[in-house]
Every structure is written in C-alpha cells, then in structure tokens.
Design a protein around this nucleic acid. Structure first.
Lengths: 81, 81
DNA sequence: AGCAGATTATCCGAAATCCAGATATCTATT
DNA sequence: AATAGATATCTGGATTTCGGATAATCTGCT
C-alpha cells in the first residue's frame, strides 16, 4: 500500500466513486467492461488500493455517468489530512 | 514511454499545466518546493512523462493557483484520441 | 439454516512506473 | 563566449500496476 493512498482525500475519492457507481446501478464488472479493463481494476480503485490518474477518472466518470467536476468539488471540501 | 501517456488528453493535460504555471509566473522549482518535491517531478509532469493522480492535481492546482475544475472542463472538450 | 448464484476482494509475479539525485542542455544576458 | 538561471534527461533501486486465477463475501431463495 503506497503511502500516497493514505490521505483522507484519497479515501474520500474512493468512497465517492463507489457512491456514484451504486447510484448508477452498475456492477464493478460492468464498469470494467465499459473501460476495457478487468473487475479487479475497479475493485482496487474503490478500495483505495490504486491511484486514479486524472484521465482515467474522466473515463470512469463517463462509464459510470457522473460529472467529474462534482467529484472535484467534493474533494476540495475534504480536508487534506 | 508508457502507452497510457500517449492520448491527446494526456498531452493536453500537460500543456494546460504548463500554461497555468506560466500564467502564475512560477518556476518549476517553485512549484516543486510548494509541493515538497523536486523540480524533475514537475518537469516530468509537464512533459507528459508522468501521470497525474487526481489528488496530486488538487495539490498542484493549489500550488499554482488555478481551479482544477477549469482544467477538467478543458479536458472534457479534448477528443479522447 | 443452508445452498446457489452473483458480486466483490485478494493473491501472485512480471512488467511498468516512480523518484531522488546527479548531470546535461537550453536560454538569455552581458 | 562565459555565466547564471531554468528546464530536461539519465540512472538505478524501490514501488506500483495489472491480468489472470482464485478466494471470500454477499443476497435471495427454499
């Protein structure tokens, strides 16, 4: 586990992605398929074990169907640590 | 060079960060210092040789002084490839 | 409760990436 | 052309990524 994934923002990011996916009524495997990746890829992101590249986030947002800017707004409201 | 860094969005992201930094009148080394990192770290990001984690982007935006949502908006207008 | 199917999490290892520190190259000024 | 300031490249060891397989967990049903 990379130390960079321990901040509260990283944690919150993971939680938010889960929430957006749930709201969209999608399974990890469905999101993965839309991304052309495997289910553990999504699982790792949602459990905060893998970092999310900004470009990947845009793809993720499109696959799930949320506005990445809303996520950014929420993160900006989250204390850094 | 990782193939994940070859999309036009990755390229554009790098360009945008450079543009924001320039506009702010900051040197790579100044940004690096604010981030607690070394200058090559910023250089690698700006030359598109390193990916940018979403959380890192927020830090970068704060260090440079731009709204990360503006960057996202610009990227969303950039074709995927 | 127990089972079955569905969903998500973990493990493994090879490949890719990250990163500091040192060094090199570029750019502008004199 | 020499210096100084800024950015880019290189090196190599540590960390991270990711597919594939498997395991664990969850859910609804009887």
């Amino acid at each position: 586990m990379p130390r960079s994934l321990r901040s509260s923002r990283h944690q919150r990011l993971a939680e938010l992605i889960v929430a957006f996916r749930m709201e969209a009524g999608l399974k990890q495997s469905e999101v993965a398929e839309r991304l052309g990746r495997h289910q553990p890829f999504v699982s790792d992101i949602e459990s905060g074990q893998r970092r999310v590249d900004l470009i990947e986030l845009l793809d993720l947002a499109e696959a799930i169907g949320f506005d990445p800017r809303d996520l950014v707004t929420a993160l900006l409201e989250t204390p850094k640590d």
